[in-house]
Simulated scan of single mutants.
Amino acid sequence: MRELVYHVAVTLDGFIAGPDGDTSAFPVDGDDVTALLREYPDTIPTHVQRAAGIEADRSRYDTIIMGWRTYTPALTAGIASPYAHLRQIVASRQERPLPPDIERTADPVATVRTLKAEQGSGIYLAGGGELAAALVDEVDRLLLKVHPFLLGAGVGMFGGAGTEGAAPGPRRFRPVRRREFDSGVVFAEYVRA
């Protein structure tokens, strides 16, 4: 069965973006970025892959699911299909105009359950916090890029956890891998216990 992997950059205090969704505090250089480009090219937007001279092989992920606010910055920059190398799904309760190669779902839980039953590689949950909260009980693996700073406020990794019909209570994960980089970033990987 395919896994839903929440692969996300996060601060020490658990934020994936600033209060207005701003991600500019997260550096885009350093030895951790080199490792990300080499080991996780499927997570890199298609236009960035081209600029960096890399090509995703879809071995880790062949599908991405993201919330509307995660998709919007690309759209604002004139990039209608940011992950053209993957099957792209945008979770939005509202009907919105999308390019033909991007699917919309108003029910991300049902969509993820259907995806998990299909053949393929992993399903990349790119965010944001509200979508992750809605999918908290479907997340099989966490791949966290923990950055050594605090934001103090912003979009929580599971912003609104316990909403969207998810049952309250702890969700246990066990650590399976941890790597530290000279940049201070730690890649921490967990699987559902």
Score class of each variant (00 low, 15 high):
A91L: 02
R50N: 09
R69I: 04
Q88D: 14
V90T: 04
I54L: 13
Y40N: 11
D22W: 10
L75K: 12
A35N: 11
S92A: 14
M66W: 00
P41E: 01
L75M: 13
T63N: 05
I102C: 08
G18Q: 04
E55G: 05
F26M: 12
P97H: 10
P19S: 03
I65A: 00
A77G: 12
R93V: 04
T105N: 06
I102S: 01
H47R: 00
T105A: 06
P97R: 12
T46H: 09
Y6M: 09
S59D: 12
D29T: 15
A74L: 11
S81A: 05
M66D: 09
T46K: 00
R87I: 09
G18N: 04
L12D: 14
Y6R: 08
E39G: 05
S92Y: 04
M66C: 07
G21E: 03
E103H: 12
V48L: 02
E103Q: 11
I89E: 06
E39V: 13
R50A: 12
S92E: 09
F26C: 02
P82G: 01
R38M: 10
S81T: 14
D107V: 03
I16K: 11
D20K: 03
D107E: 11
T43S: 04
H47G: 00
S59I: 13
G53S: 03
Y40V: 07
A9K: 09
D101M: 13
T105S: 02
A84S: 13
T34E: 09
T70P: 15
D62V: 06
D57I: 08
I16N: 11
A77E: 15
A80R: 13
V48T: 00
E39R: 09
T43F: 15
